[in-house]
C-alpha cells in the first residue's frame, strides 16, 4: 500500500514544490509553508539517523574489538553521552553544555582543521610538479594568486595584483561559469528524475 503510494506522492509533492514558486497566491504560500515544514522535519530526522548510525557502529566496535581497540570508541561514546546529558540542562553559553563546547570541542575542532596547513605545505613541496603543460599552468596561476593576495607580494612584484585580478575575473570566471551551467543542467535533470521516481528511493532500485 505504502510502496504504491510512494511514487505518486513524490510526483505530487515535487510538482507542487516547483509550481508554488510561480504562484504568489496565499493558497500557494500555504502549500509552500507546509512543504517546507515537512522538508525541515524530514531532514532533521535524516541527521538524527546519521548520528544514531554512528552510535551503533561505535557500539559494535566496543563489543567486537580487543581491550585496546575498545578504548577509542568508548571514549567517543562517553564524550557524546557527556554532551547529551549536559544538553538536557540548557544549551546557552552559561551552562555546562556551553562550557564543554567552549573549552573542549571548540579548541579540538579549530586545531584539527588548522593541521591541514602543515599537511598542505608538505604536499606542495613533494607533489606540486611541473611535469606537464596543464600542471605548469595550474602552478603558475597558484603562485600568482598566492603572492598577489598578500601585501608582501604586492610590494615585491608591483603589477602582480593586476595579473591576479585578470586571472580571477577572466579565465576563472569563464571556467566556473562553464561548471555552474553544467552543474545546473545536470542538477535539473537529476531533480526531474527524482521527482518522477526514475532515480532515488522510490524507483530505479537504488536509495
Amino acid at each position: 500500500m505504502l510502496r504504491a503510494l510512494t511514487r505518486p506522492l513524490a510526483i505530487l509533492l515535487g510538482g507542487a514544490a516547483i509550481l508554488v514558486y510561480f504562484v504568489p497566491h496565499q493558497a500557494g504560500q500555504w502549500v509552500e509553508a507546509r512543504l517546507v515544514d515537512w522538508l525541515v522535519l524530514l531532514q532533521a530526522a535524516a541527521l538524527v539517523a546519521g548520528i544514531l548510525a554512528l552510535i551503533r557502529r561505535q557500539l559494535a566496535r566496543v563489543r567486537s574489538g580487543s581491550l585496546s581497540q575498545r578504548i577509542y570508541p568508548m571514549l567517543m561514546l562517553g564524550s557524546m553521552a557527556a554532551m547529551l546529558i549536559a544538553g538536557l540542562f540548557g544549551t546557552t553559553a552559561a551552562t555546562a553544555f556551553g562550557a564543554l563546547y567552549g573549552s573542549v570541542l571548540q579548541p579540538i575542532q579549530a586545531s584539527m582543521l588548522s593541521l591541514l596547513a602543515f599537511y598542505m605545505a608538505s604536499a606542495v613541496f613533494r607533489s606540486f610538479r611541473l611535469t606537464s603543460a596543464p600542471a605548469t599552468i595550474l602552478l603558475i596561476s597558484a603562485l600568482v594568486v598566492l603572492l598577489a593576495r598578500i601585501p608582501l607580494g604586492e610590494q615585491m612584484i608591483p603589477r602582480i595584483s593586476v595579473f591576479a585580478t585578470w586571472i580571477i575575473r577572466g579565465p576563472n570566471v569563464a571556467a566556473t561559469r562553464g561548471l555552474w551551467i553544467g552543474m545546473g543542467l545536470a542538477a535539473v535533470a537529476t531533480a526531474f528524475r527524482v521527482i518522477l521516481g526514475v532515480q532515488g528511493p522510490s524507483g530505479g532500485g537504488r536509495s
Binding site: L2, T6, A10, A17, L42, I181, T190, A191
Partner: peptide, 27 residues
C-alpha cells in the same frame, strides 16, 4: 516502507524547490 516514503518525500520536495532556482540562477 514508511522510512522509504519519508526519504522519497524529502528528496522530491528538495528537488522541486531547487528547479526554478537552478534554471534561473545557475543556467
Amino acid at each position: 516502507a514508511l522510512g522509504t516514503l519519508g526519504v522519497t518525500i524529502a528528496a522530491a520536495i528538495a528537488a522541486g524547490f531547487a528547479v526554478p532556482g537552478l534554471v534561473q540562477n545557475l543556467i
